[in-house]
């Protein structure tokens, strides 16, 4: 922080989808920073724009998606101003992505080695044997047996495939890795292993990571800083510890409360099963035009100002901001 230029600085980013029914403002003016070697997290319900926010960094958007405004400064260079061709050559070299690899993120009819070699040789002028050597090293680095590098994806388990995805993401020595729900389809034990692996790589390679998840516990656990997103906006941003201890925005509070409490003591007292409280109402349709604070239709503390005026960043702590007019007046 402070005087150091952050690795990634996103300012007032707007990414809209042009659909038949109208314009969906998937990301509507968000700003955040990620420092070299830092871990950042996005959390929110599905459809809140967290994935679009992260993929906008390297313009990896569907055909109807466009960046309509704002800047993405990567080491001070504005990526939104680059042509598609320029941005294409920056992908994977500067920023790579770990997708939900347990599912279908690897080409089923191509050998794994070939899929990684392809990425390396696209960005670096090295021979196939050299690239294969690197794949072997990467395999060892992510805890896979290098003898398996010529297998096909279907021969691997979900956790192994996710390790392959991480090896693939490391292939061109990027500075930033985006993990888009990297552990979602995995069972809890494997989830923990994959998160540990990412954390270990981040520390040893001084990599910055952006983790996207709908799972609060994953983000609190794995990230130093985080942003809570709701309906295309960041509603709360700051240090993970601060937000965990003192959630300020009503939406964040409800998210934290929605998490099942596993403390047996409490359960015994209340005699209830440890199910979290759900949040009343539905997440809004991204096509809806909601004035003021996007959360006001579901917020029990909403007042006329919340309907009329869009909240600005309110300082909650040293590195903790909430976009809510009333955060300090809620019990």
């Amino acid at each position: 922080m402070g005087t150091v230029t952050p690795l990634l600085e996103v300012r007032d980013l707007k990414t809209y989808f042009h659909t038949k029914e109208g314009i969906a403002k998937a990301v509507d003016g968000i700003s955040f920073e990620v420092n070299e070697g830092a871990s950042f997290g996005f959390v929110g319900e599905s459809g809140c724009g967290k994935t679009t926010a992260a993929l906008s960094i390297i313009k990896l958007l569907p055909k109807n998606g466009r960046i309509e405004g704002g800047q993405v400064l990567f080491r001070g260079e504005d990526l939104t101003a680059k042509s598609d061709e320029e941005i294409r050559m920056r992908r994977w070299k500067d920023v790579s992505i770990v997708f939900q690899g347990a599912m279908n993120s690897l080409n089923p009819v191509m050998r794994i080695s070939k899929q990684i070699v392809e990425a390396i040789r696209l960005h670096e002028d090295i021979s196939i044997p050299e690239a294969r050597e690197r794949v072997k090293r990467l395999f060892a680095q992510v805890g896979l047996n290098p003898a398996l590098l010529d297998q096909y994806p279907h021969e691997f388990s979900g956790g192994m495939k996710q390790r392959v995805m991480i090896a693939l993401a490391l292939a061109c020595n990027p500075r930033l890795i985006i993990g888009d729900e990297p552990t979602t389809a995995l069972d809890v034990m494997v989830q923990a292993q994959i998160l540990d692996l990412l954390e270990e790589l981040r520390r040893s390679l001084n990599l910055a990571t952006i983790l996207i998840s709908h799972d609060l516990s994953v983000i609190f656990d794995a990230c130093e800083r985080l942003a809570v997103m709701y309906c295309g906006k960041i509603v709360e941003i700051g240090g993970a510890r601060e937000i965990y201890l003192r959630p300020a925005h009503p939406y964040t509070r409800k998210l934290v409360n929605a998490f099942p409490d596993l403390e047996l003591e409490k359960q015994r007292k209340t005699g209830k099963r440890a199910l979290g409280k759900s949040i009343a109402g539905d997440p809004p349709n991204p096509l809806d035009r909601i004035t003021g604070c996007k959360f006001h239709p579901r917020c029990e503390w909403a007042e006329p100002r919340c309907v009329e005026e869009e909240p600005v960043a309110m300082k909650v702590g040293a590195d903790h901001r909430a976009f809510c007019w009333k955060w300090d007046r809620i019990g």
């Binding site: 390297i58 997708f99 279908n104 993120s105 089923p108 990425a119 696209l122």
Partner: peptide, 14 residues
């Protein structure tokens, strides 16, 4: 529309 196509695009393939 499969996920591995997004992976291929993300790698920087044209």
């Amino acid at each position: 529309s499969e996920d591995f196509i997004v992976t291929a695009r993300a790698k920087g393939l044209s």
